[in-house]
Every structure is written in C-alpha cells, then in structure tokens.
Design a protein around this nucleic acid. Sequence first.
DNA 1: AATTTCACCGATAGTACTATCGGTGAAATT
DNA 2: AATTTCACCGATAGTACTATCGGTGAAATT
Lengths: 241, 241
Amino acid sequence: MTSTPLTRSEAKDLTRRKLIRAALAILDEEGEAGLSTVKVAKAAGIAQSSFYVHFKDMQELLLVLAEEGGARLRASMREARRRARESPGDLDLHRETFRIPLESICRHPELLRIQLRARHDPSSSLRGFATESAAAYREHHAADLAALGYTADDERDRRRLEMIADGINAATNALAMGHLEGRYPDLDEAADILTALSRGALRWLKATSAKPGPAADQAADQAADQAADQAAGPAEGPGSA
Amino acid sequence: MTSTPLTRSEAKDLTRRKLIRAALAILDEEGEAGLSTVKVAKAAGIAQSSFYVHFKDMQELLLVLAEEGGARLRASMREARRRARESPGDLDLHRETFRIPLESICRHPELLRIQLRARHDPSSSLRGFATESAAAYREHHAADLAALGYTADDERDRRRLEMIADGINAATNALAMGHLEGRYPDLDEAADILTALSRGALRWLKATSAKPGPAADQAADQAADQAADQAAGPAEGPGSA
DNA sequence: AATTTCACCGATAGTACTATCGGTGAAATT
DNA sequence: AATTTCACCGATAGTACTATCGGTGAAATT
C-alpha cells in the first residue's frame, strides 16, 4: 500500500524488465510474427516510442531474451546434474536421468516452444539461440548417456553416441510437449519410455562398439538392466532362445 | 523453340502453378514471415495485383499448399507401406521400417521443415496442417511398431505405444534433419539407431504389458532380436548374469 | 535554490504490405 | 465480323508498423 520511492535508475530498470516480460509473453502466445514495438510497449504500460529508450530495436530485445533464456537453460542443466549426482541409488539413476529434463521443460515450457519454432525458421532472430540450445541439449544428453556406462572410443562411436543423444533429445521434447498438450498425463510414464528407448540404443551401441569395453562396464550394464526390469514389474526373461 | 499456343484456361492454370511453386520456395527459404503477395507474384512473373485473380488472399494460397503437402505426405506413406510389404525378409523388415521414412523425408525436406516450424507457432496459418501431419506420422509409426509384432490390449498399452511412436517419430525427424544439415552423412546408420531405439522400447513394452501375449509373438520377437544381432556384427551375449 | 539530466510522451515521416478499381487487349463466343 | 469475356496491368487508398524528434516534468546534481 505504501508508495515505493524508486530512484530514477531503479524505475528505468523496472520498465526494462516489464518490456522483457511482456515480449516473452507475447512471443509465447502469438509467436515471433506477433511481436511489435506497439504491442510490447503497450503491454508494458509505456508509449511505443519509449521502447527505444531501452532497446535499439526489437532485434536487440530478442537478443537479450535469448541470452537470458540461454542462462536459464544452463542453470537448469547444472541443477539437473546436481540432482543426478545426489540421486539415490543405481536403480533410479537411469530413470532420473530422463525425468529431470522432462520436469525442467515443463517448468518453463515457453522456452522449448520458442526454441522449437525458431530452430528451422530462417526469418527468426532467435535461430542462433535455438541452434545453440539444441546443441547444448544434445551434449547434455550425450553426457548423460556416457554417465550411464558408455564411452565412445573412435569417431564412428562418437558420432553414433551423438545421434542417439539427438534422437533421445527429440523424443524428450516430443513427450514433454505431448504432456503439456494434455495427451500424456503422466511424466513418469514418459521417463519410462525414454529409459526404454535409451536402453535399446545403448545395448546396440555396446554390442557393435569397436572395443567391447572392460568387463566392469558390462557388469554395470547388466546390473542396470536387471534393476530396470525389476522396477518395471513382471519381467520377460531376456533369453530362452 | 516453337511457340506453345495455350488456351486461356491453360495459361491461367500455369500461372497458378507458378504462384504455388514460388510460394513454396519462398516459404522454405525465408519462412512464413518472408511471404508476401509482392514477392510471390514477382517470383511468379506477374503483377502483385494479379495475385488476387488466383487466390482470395495469402491465407488461401497457404491452404492450397497445405492440402497439396498433405496429399504428397499420404502418397509417400502409401508408397512406404507398399515397399515395406515387398521388402525382402524378416531380417531387413525392422530396419526398412525406419529407413523408408528417412528417405521419404530427405526427398522432400521442405515439407518437414515447414511442418516443424509451423507445429508450435500460434501465428502460422499452417499450424492445422502441421498438427495433422504430425498426428499422421505418429499413427504411421504406431502402425509400423504394431507390424513389428506388438499389439496393445488395454488403454495404458495403447497410450504407451502412441508415446513410443511419438518419440520414434521425433527421433526420425531429428536424425533426418541432422542428415540434411550434413552432421550425419549415412542414412543407414540413422536407420540402425532408430531400430535400436525402437527395439529397446518394444522389449520394455512387452516385458511390462498387461497380457504377455501369445507365444508366437514372443518367438517372432526373439527371431527379430537374433536377426538384428547378427546383422549388427559381433554380438554381446544377451545374458550371462 | 538554480541548473542539469533523462525517462517518458505525442506527433509524425517513412516503409512495406494488402486489397480494390478501372483499363486493356487478346482469346473466346456469338 | 461483331461482341463478350477475362487474365493481367498500373495506380492507389488503407493498414500496421518502425524509428526519430522536440517537448515536459520530476529526479538528480550543483
């Protein structure tokens, strides 16, 4: 209720934040085509011409948006790694690995939506941001997969690992979007499916890898397989052929 | 060299085709934001105002584009099914299932690019088309997976199968785009990875399915596993635990 | 207290585009 | 041969937006 006496720079910064917030909301709701200095300024509660007190043009605002989006992304990835390290035991590790990114997307769905739109749009100012984000996610997933016991030795294996990470990443996005659209109510189920997909890929990767890898790795894999099978419920025995 | 004496309606239809072609090219190269009656008409070699002889507005042209895209999509899916039926033996079936869509995408990459862009863009006139296409692809993949030996019995299993198809579909698109962008030179490798992903998912689906399914299904699965393992090279034995 | 700074304002010139309108000439019809 | 049709044209009114400019008043500085 009490009036808040802001200094001039504080007030300016507040207006700037309002502009950024308004732009993000419009970007998410109407897409990049819906963005205009008129709409953004009006939504932020200032005159259209005052937009230029804060940004050289819309392109500059989008750049700031992309930088902040990137920072939030990196933070959420750090957070994910931290949680993964603290994650309870071997049994949950694999599944946690996929549930964490899903949750992270669902906490800020607009980031992914904007990224997915801009990724292949030549007219988008955010294309660079989208491409970098996609690459970052890909690397993140590749590191996750590596943490699950597989390390690539030669170029072919590295490329394969990247492709798998790319595929899993795309599947993660698709399932998260499906969840947000209400098609897949249960995120845990989505995590299960990503786990199953990745286990198939890792199994194949190990089976066809240049170097079979030390026995320890294989033992770890077996353990993970067993754990997953147990967690899944009544298991089909892996081999009677 | 000889002049081609076209009737009036033939000439009109030709111009219409030119407009559609020009719009598709601009849409692919510059995105939906780059489309304007000025550019499209100029690219088609007519005056801007003549655009309206053929279409009520740009929206109508985009609708026609979407319809034609949808038709091409359905045709390529029919073609894929035909080829899959004619496909040689059990060994290649699983792999063919994934190579065919990859090839189909790479033959008309602009269709997927446009679809991926429009899919989550509220401002896009093509959003409906993109959503329908995505659903069609999803169903296509779900049918493919079903053809590989799995049929869903209850609602949970059907939803799971849809999620897996969604994930595999997203991965297919991602790998195809990566191929087109030059990151993954070999489409066969991409098909291998999709195969591996789907085998993991199907394995899990069967292991956790409500009804374990008839023995025949399981036998077929075992055979597919063996075939894939043989094709893959020196196999890691499935179980020594 | 006097002066300076500056965030914000309204007005507006300039740009890009859409969609309409009357005119034209060759094809089609009579 | 005379008449009608119509695909296409140039001109233009209308719309939406960008980016600049001079003005204003309160905060900040002197």
